[in-house]
């Protein structure tokens, strides 16, 4: 298998993937949120840095 190939998906994995997609769908409502332009991703940060809300 080439590392470029997708990870093989079992039947249970495919069902779980569909369920995950359905749960994540609600996040698309935030695509039109008025604050979105000023909202950067809170990527996994170095633990020595402050969590995103700490400064407020």
């Amino acid at each position: 298998m080439s590392p470029d190939d997708p990870v093989p998906m079992s039947a249970a994995g495919a069902a779980a993937a569909e369920h995950v997609r359905s749960v994540l769908a609600v996040l698309r409502e935030l695509d039109t949120h008025p604050d979105l332009a000023e909202t950067h991703p809170a990527a996994a940060f170095d633990p020595m840095e402050e969590p995103p809300g700490a400064a407020l």
Binding site: P6, V7, P8, M9, S10, A12, G13, A14, A16, A17, H19, V20, R21, L24, L27, R28, L30, D31, H33, D35, L36, T39, H40, P41, A42, A43, P51, P52, G53
Partner: peptide, 22 residues
């Protein structure tokens, strides 16, 4: 396995939602 199918766009949506939530 399900996690390998999550798109980068959805992952970044979650990261931005997290910023808003925090």
């Amino acid at each position: 396995e399900a996690g390998t199918a999550v798109t980068a766009a959805d992952h970044l949506r979650a990261q931005r939602a997290r910023t808003m939530m925090a």
